[in-house]
Amino acid sequence: MERTATGPAAAASAPLSGAPLPDGTAVVPVPAIADLLDGMPRQRHATTPAPASEPALAGPRPAAPLPSLPFPFPLLRPWRLLPTPTGTPFTFAYVAVLAVTSVFAALADPALVHTLHQDSSTDVAHLVRTPGLVLLASALWIAGGVLSPYALAFVLVLTALERRIGGARAACVFLAGHVLATLATEVPVGLAVLFGHLPATSLHRLDYGISFGVAAGIGSLAGLLRPWLRWPLLTLTAGTLLDDLIAFQDPMTNWGHLIALTIGVASWPFVRRWAQSAQGCGEL
C-alpha cells in the first residue's frame, strides 16, 4: 500500500504555487495565506541585497605590505653601506686596488714609496709631460693611508652613488672631480710661476690621492638625498673644508676640495636623470 504524507510534512512538501492538487483543489499562494492570517508579520524586501558575510572559518586578511624605505637607512639595511662584487663592482674593485696600494705603502721601503708618490704626483711638471698617466696614477693612492677620513668616505659615498646611478656613471663623477679640480688648482700654479709670482719649485709640488674625487662624490650624492639629509651633509662637508682652508696649511689642496664639491653639486641634473633611468627614483 502506498504511503502518503499528511499533516505539516505534507503541507511543507506541497507546491507553493497555484498548481492543483490531486483532488482538483488549488493551493492558495503563500502571500494570500499571509493576508488571511491576522498578526503574521510580512517579510520586508530590501531594496539592495545585503553584503554577504565572510565565512566564519576564514582566516585574517593579509596585511598590506609596508612601503619600502629608500636607502640609506643603516639601521634597516646596513649591508648596503658596503660594496659588493655584484652590486657595486666598480667601487668593490677600486677599494681592492686602494687596499693593495695602502698595504704596500705601509710595508715597503719609505724611499721607494716616496719615489712612487712623486712619479704619480699631478704637479705642473708631470701634467705637462704625461697628463693622462699621472691623473690616473695619482688616484691609486690614499693620502694618509686606510685610516684617513677620505678612505671611509670613499667607501660609503661611492657605494651609495653606484647603487643609484651605476658603476660607469659613478666613475664619471669621481673622475670629473679628480681631474677638473686638479686642473683648476695646478693650472693657476703654472701661470703664477710663468709670471714670476711663485718660485719654480712650485712646479714639483707633491699632489696625489683620492680626496678630490671623494669631495665630488659627496656633492653629487647629496643631490639624490632627501632635503632633511641633503643640506646637513652639504653644510657639514663645506664647513669642514672651509675650516681647513682658513687654517691655511695647504691652501691649493683645500681650494681643490671646495672646487670638487662644487663640481659634484653641479652634476645634480645629470645624476638625478641617471638615477631615474636606472632605478625609477630620483631621490634616496
Rank of each mutant, 00 (worst) to 15 (best):
L112W: 12
G190C: 06
A125Q: 09
A200R: 14
I165W: 03
A108I: 08
T201D: 14
L133V: 15
V100H: 04
R129S: 13
T122V: 13
V179P: 03
S148W: 14
G167Y: 04
G177F: 07
A99H: 11
L161H: 05
G145D: 08
S120K: 04
P89C: 03
V97K: 12
E186P: 00
R169M: 08
S120D: 03
L194Y: 14
F104G: 09
T185R: 06
V157I: 14
A139F: 08
G190H: 05
V173C: 06
G213A: 01
G145T: 12
F92E: 00
D207Q: 11
Y94K: 13
V193R: 04
L175G: 10
F195R: 14
L107R: 12
P199F: 09
G209M: 01
V103C: 10
A151L: 05
V95G: 06
A184P: 06
L147R: 14
S211W: 02
L198Q: 15
A181H: 11
H126G: 02
L198T: 13
L133H: 07
T101V: 09
C172P: 00
G132D: 05
L156Q: 09
S148T: 10
A151Q: 08
L156F: 15
T182N: 04
A125F: 10
L161I: 01
F212M: 02
T86R: 05
P188C: 13
L112S: 08
A137M: 14
L158G: 01
H126F: 08
V128S: 05
P199G: 15
P131G: 06
L161R: 02
V189N: 00
P110F: 15
V214S: 06
S148P: 11
H204K: 11
S148M: 08
G209T: 04
H126V: 09
A143Y: 07
G217R: 02
L112Q: 15
D119C: 02
S211F: 00
T88H: 08
L161A: 02
H126W: 09
L180E: 01
L107E: 13
R163V: 03
A93D: 03
A105W: 12
V97W: 08
E186A: 01
Y208K: 03
F174T: 04
V100K: 06
H197L: 11
L175Q: 07
F90E: 12
G213T: 07
H117C: 08
A216R: 01
L191G: 10
